[in-house]
């Protein structure tokens, strides 16, 4: 167990050579590579940090824009709601006005219809009254209705007051045409003469006459000159009767439909 000094020297040299070779082929490449990787990782971390900060900035920007957008959206929504409210109020008012106008139109149409019905009924009533009166007078007093009508008309001519008489004369003088005498029936010559005589007596002059038959004047006679009319018919009586019937008729609705007022 002795030391071989050549081996010692050789082993020292071997070891030193090995140190040099290992530094060259093992430690240096490995350490350089580890340093490169550390730098690479550090660079990646720096990039990640920069990207993160960039992403954070973008996120903040996005959030800011989002908030602004929300505010604008809310403002627009509020504005739209207000405009819709105004528009709806306007449309509602317009609809109410239209409904009211339609209701008024309906009411007017109903009134017109009522007036037509009343007028028709008045005419029919006049005809009926005329026919009944004519028959009653013929049956009970053996009196001709037409003759009696003429008689009553003449009495009326004779009974006009002075003021009315002046108006009649004035109208007669200003008229260029003849005095128009209309009757519901054909006047015989005798009765035409009696009327002419009564008028002449009042006026003190002989005017010209024109006699016409007007079925609308139910059971009546009417004398017309410019702006002045004098007449008698059973229409006045019928009107009185109609008035009383009309007041009673107001209690009954014109149609079966009930109109609701639109608020």
């Amino acid at each position: 167990m002795q030391i071989n000094w050549f081996t010692v020297i050789a082993q020292i040299l071997n070891f030193l050579v090995l140190v040099w070779l290992m530094k060259r082929y093992l430690y240096k490449p490995i350490l350089d590579m580890i340093d490169a990787r550390e730098k690479k990782i550090a660079g990646q971390l720096a990039d990640a940090k920069a990207t993160k900060s960039e992403a954070k900035a973008e996120q903040d920007e996005f959030n800011k824009k989002n908030r602004v957008f929300d505010q604008q959206k809310n403002a627009l929504m509020d504005k739209a709601i207000a405009e819709v409210g105004v528009q709806s109020q306007k449309l509602l008012a317009e609809a109410k006005n239209n409904a009211r106008a339609l209701q008024d139109k309906l009411e007017k149409a109903a009134k017109d219809q009522q007036a037509d019905v009343n007028h028709q009924r008045e005419k029919e009533t006049e005809k009926e009254v005329f026919a009944i009166t004519k028959k009653v007078l013929a049956d009970l007093a053996d009196v001709d209705f037409e003759a009696q009508s003429v008689h009553t008309f003449i009495k009326r001519i004779n009974g006009i007051k002075e003021a009315e008489k002046a108006t009649f004369i004035k109208a007669l003088h200003s008229a260029s045409g003849p005095i128009l005498v209309q009757s519901a029936f054909d006047l015989p010559e005798k009765q035409q003469a009696e009327i002419k005589s009564a008028v002449t007596k009042i006026l003190g002059a002989q005017p010209s006459f024109e006699f016409k038959t007007a079925p609308g004047l139910i059971g009546g006679i009417e004398l017309t000159t410019k702006g002045y009319t004098l007449g008698w018919s059973i229409t006045a009586y019928v009107n009185s009767f109609e008035k009383s019937i009309g007041e009673a008729g107001k209690q009954i609705p014109v149609t079966g439909k009930k109109h609701h007022a639109i608020k």
Partner: peptide
Amino acid sequence: GSLSTTTALALC
């Protein structure tokens, strides 16, 4: 296992 080697290393 050689004292020469260990001596060489120890001298290093």
